[in-house]
Structures are given as structure tokens and as C-alpha cells.
Design a protein around this nucleic acid. Sequence first.
DNA 1: GCATATTTGTCCGTATGTATA
DNA 2: CTATACATACGGACAAATATG
Lengths: 217, 217
Amino acid sequence: MGQGSTARAVSEHVSDWITEGRLLPGAKVSDTAVATELEVSRNTVREAFRLLAHDGLLVHEFNRGVFVPLVTSADVRDVYRLRRVIEPAVVRSLSAADVHRLGPLQAAVGAARTASRRRDWPGVGTANMHFHRSLVALAGSPRLDVMMRRLTAELRLLFAVIDDPRFLYQPFVKRNRELLALMAKGRFEEGAGFLEAYLVDSEGAIVAAFEEKEQSA
Amino acid sequence: MGQGSTARAVSEHVSDWITEGRLLPGAKVSDTAVATELEVSRNTVREAFRLLAHDGLLVHEFNRGVFVPLVTSADVRDVYRLRRVIEPAVVRSLSAADVHRLGPLQAAVGAARTASRRRDWPGVGTANMHFHRSLVALAGSPRLDVMMRRLTAELRLLFAVIDDPRFLYQPFVKRNRELLALMAKGRFEEGAGFLEAYLVDSEGAIVAAFEEKEQSA
DNA sequence: GCATATTTGTCCGTATGTATA
DNA sequence: CTATACATACGGACAAATATG
């Protein structure tokens, strides 16, 4: 039974299916089908679905079933509107004492660089998300952490639609490093402004890729 | 089966029990007990618990059970830290076109005034929460709405601990009205600053009441 | 529009594992 | 350490709602 709950293991599976593109946005996810495939009880699968719905990776419509959410460019804009409010505010709220707590950010930047050298673009994507999650974690707010976890989960959903994420991530590996350097010097106000411009550019790139997709569809 | 799901009906019941003080913070909520009392299945109760945990009104610890969260003054500060980031940012993001969309805020202010005259302090509290939820709704962000719903749900949890919420709400009925007046004139930047000071004072009052409670306990 | 088949929501009883007295 | 209580997980079952022919 592993170390966690079975329901959590099932949720990991389904989560992977979404990021791997096996489950496309809008697809219905049948609890019985998942139950037979993973050889667990239907009740357990339903529990797993609740966990995923909690993070926004599935939506539950009463008496109709659970579905992979349909994401549009409007959703991209909404997610980034929140990021632009939250992340710079976190950087601005830091003080000199926090300079010595940047370890996780350093690690994420390093992971992004090695993944980039290996042309492992999904790896770059996960490292990027670790960077931003660790950044928000610096605020020390449990509620902000769960909000950011939900947002990054939705970002995974967004990126699953885009087939070639290389040009979306690669430019931002460098900017993560630059932001980290500013923070390490305690220049938080400057870093917050840098991050704001960063997020605006990132949103623009993703929205563009998205609307291109929407055209073709 | 009613109009919604039975699970939702059960969640409403338990939610009421918490606000009514029948379930105190830290209390364990047994699924079997709730199931027998409301005459529904344990499975359905567990579903209801998931819904409530999603809004932060219950916490789920693996292999231990479900509990009403223990709230401390640190939680009060955390909730208000988020409110101070989110709410002023919303006000700042508004434009002249939004002046004609303040109807729900007007209604909430009116409800607060009549409830205050009737010395219906819980009524004042709910009107106050409607005011702030409607304020955030002006941003037109679905994700921000669910975040705010979660925060207001937790505020209900906080206020359930305080027996006399009169002096906590009464001073802010007037300030809600003043903030609304500023927004109606399109003075959003000024309103954002006003709201920030407002939230600082509100936090101070609630933290004080809370630490008084913690002393006696 | 109707009858049918599928799916979902809900329930029960039980077995197994985990935490706590 | 043992024993008790409890939580997780299972599989089967049925009614209601939905989708399908």
C-alpha cells in the first residue's frame, strides 16, 4: 500500500495522465474506468477525484461526472493576474534576514540550468515551478502556499496543451537567475519590479501560444 | 434527494454547527457520529467533509480523522496579511467603468446599517463579509473569488470564538460606507490606501480580542 | 417523445491497517 | 505490549439521473 494513502496514489496517476496529454482538456474521466484500470475500488477513485478537484485539476459536475477543465486564454490571463499580485508582493515583503533563506531558490535555478543543458524541457518547467513556489514560501504564509500550489497545478494544465514548451521556458531560466541575484543582494524592491515585468512577458508568450492553438482548433 | 447533493446538505449542517459554537476549534468530528445523527451514510459524510476541508472549515489528518481547525492569533495575522495584499490591489485595479457596478456593495452597506440598528451583530458580520466578497468580485477573477470565499469562511471560524463581536464590527460599518463613497467618485487609489489602513485597524482589534481569549485559556 | 442502457450518487457490511489508552 | 477504537479501503448493491437509440 506504499507510504501514503491509496487515494493519493491514484490521484498522482491521474495527474500524470493529464500532464502527459493522455487526458485532454474537456475529457470526461470515468471513475469506473479508472477503478478497473488501476485495480482499486470505485469509492477510492472518487476520493482521489476529490483531491484533484481540490487543486483544480478536475472539475466535478453533479450527476454528470468529472472532467478535465477546459482552459482558454482567459484562464491564462486570470492565473497571471493573480501571480502578478501575489509574487511581487511577497518579494517586497522580505527583509535582510531573508537573504539567508534562499537555498531552495538556488537549487531550483541550478536544476533548471542542468535540465536546460540536457534539453529536458519538461524538467525545465518543473524546476521553474519549484522556483516560484519556493519564492512564495518565503512569505511564511500557509494560506499563500496552498493558493500558490493551486495556481502551479493549473499552470501544469495550461502547459499540457502546448506541444513545444521550449521557447516558453528557456528565456526565463536566465531571468530567474537574475531575480535571485537581486534578492541575494537584498534589493527586494528592485527585484519586485523585475519580477512584475518578467510575469508580464511570460503571460504574453503563453497567451500568444494559446491563441494560436485556439485558432487552429 | 432535494435540489443539491445530500453531501452538500450535510456540509451546510456541519458548517452551521461550527458557527453556532456547537463544534469548538480543535474538536474531532466523527464521521460515524454525524452519519447516525443526520441519518446518512458515512461515505456521504466523508464527501461533505471534503467539501468543508476545501473551504478550510475542517482539516483532515491522515489516519487520524477530521477536526475543527485550531485557530490562533497567528492565523488571524495570516488571513489579514492576504487580505491586505488582495483587497487593496483589487480596488487599485478598477477603472471609471466600474463605478456603475457597485450595486452589491451598496446593498451590503445598507444591510449592515439596518442590522446595526437592530443590534443584530451576527447580521452585521455577514453583511460585512458580503461587502468584502462583492468588492473582490469586482475584479472579475474566478480564482480570486474562490480564494476570497475561503478567507471569509475562515473569518467565520475566527469570529465563532469571540463571544461579543459587537465592538469588532460596529466601527467598520461606517468605514465600509466611506470606502464605498470614495469608490463611487472614482477615487480608487485613495480608496486603496483607505482600505489598507482599515484592514490594519481591523486586524489589530481582532488580534487583541484573540490574545485576550488565549490568556484566559 | 419514448424506452432503454449507462453512469452517477448513495448506502451497507466487512476486512485490514493505524494510532492511542 | 496488549487491547481497543477508529480510519482507510474494498466490493457489491440499488435508485435516480443522464445519455443513447
